[in-house]
Simulated scan of single mutants.
Amino acid sequence: MLTSEELATRIARVQQVITEAAERAGRDPRAVRIVAVTKGVERALVDLAYQLGLRIFGENRVQEAAQKFGETPLPEDAELHLIGHLQTNKARSAVRLFSMIHSVDRIPLVLELERRSERLNQRVPVLIQINVAREPQKHGCAPEEAPSLVQAILAAPQLELRGLMTIAPLTSHDEDIRQVFRMLRLLRDDLEQRFGIPLPELSMGMTNDFPIAVEEGATLVRIGRALFGERQDGDRLVR
């Protein structure tokens, strides 16, 4: 496990990169928040990250999050976000566990989240996941499907639409990555104008590409490896 000094150094380094990227784009660095991705990270290290000032944590799977946080939730001033694909049959658990769900990408999921949220009398902030690059191996709705999802969420009283999320292609071509993030921002702007609603959150950017995401308007950057290093996820190494 990382020492407190090692993790503090990693956090400071990520925060410095965010600051520099935001200043290049003429943005306030305080408008960008880190979602510390804790997939494969033991709870003790999560607690250490909290002690060092991080307040938003992201999990990819409902089951792992339940094992890690179900019996002992994070402190009240911390948030747990679901950033991975959500199966409809896990909606009940997701509503109980998470402060925000980044990966809403289909109308049946919207309806199930609304049903479960209503039963718990709980309002759930959500983001629509957009597959901007149209990669067949990735989840997310196509950009042209976003308006119908917005309508469905606006018709669900227990769900609070906060913005959009995307995952950029894994490529060394920065301009391809930038184009994906820029397209998400422009789609957000179009949806705000079309529906007359604020969509303040853009969840985009991970360890490999978060400086570009910040330059293009990200408000939430999902950082795992740059904070916690490579982690074991079952028999697979998380990079």
Rank of each mutant, 00 (worst) to 15 (best):
V17G: 07
V180E: 04
F181W: 12
P211F: 15
P169H: 00
R225H: 08
R106M: 05
L186P: 03
L184V: 02
L74D: 01
V214C: 10
D176V: 15
G84Y: 05
Q129Y: 03
L80I: 01
Q15G: 06
E112H: 00
M165G: 06
Q15V: 08
T207G: 03
R222T: 02
I153Y: 09
T219L: 09
E23R: 13
N131M: 02
V104G: 07
R222M: 11
A152V: 01
Q87G: 10
Q122D: 02
R106Y: 06
L120G: 11
Q129M: 11
R27I: 07
R27L: 13
N89C: 11
I18Y: 03
R222Q: 04
I130C: 12
Q63Y: 03
E215I: 07
L2F: 04
L184F: 00
S148P: 05
L186T: 07
R115V: 10
H85I: 04
P157I: 12
Q87A: 13
R61G: 08
Q151M: 09
L187I: 12
I128E: 04
E20L: 15
R231D: 05
C141D: 10
R119A: 15
E76R: 08
F57P: 12
R162F: 01
L54E: 10
L164V: 14
D77E: 11
A91F: 06
Y50H: 15
A65D: 08
S172G: 13
H81C: 11
L97E: 10
R27E: 10
P200H: 14
F57N: 01
G40S: 08
S99Y: 01
R92T: 14
Q179T: 13
S172V: 14
R119N: 03
R225Q: 11
E144I: 03
T88C: 10
T207S: 13
K68H: 06
L199K: 08
E59M: 08
V62Y: 01
G53E: 06
A12S: 07
L7Q: 03
Q179Y: 03
Q63F: 01
E192R: 11
E144T: 12
R30V: 09
L45W: 05
R182K: 12
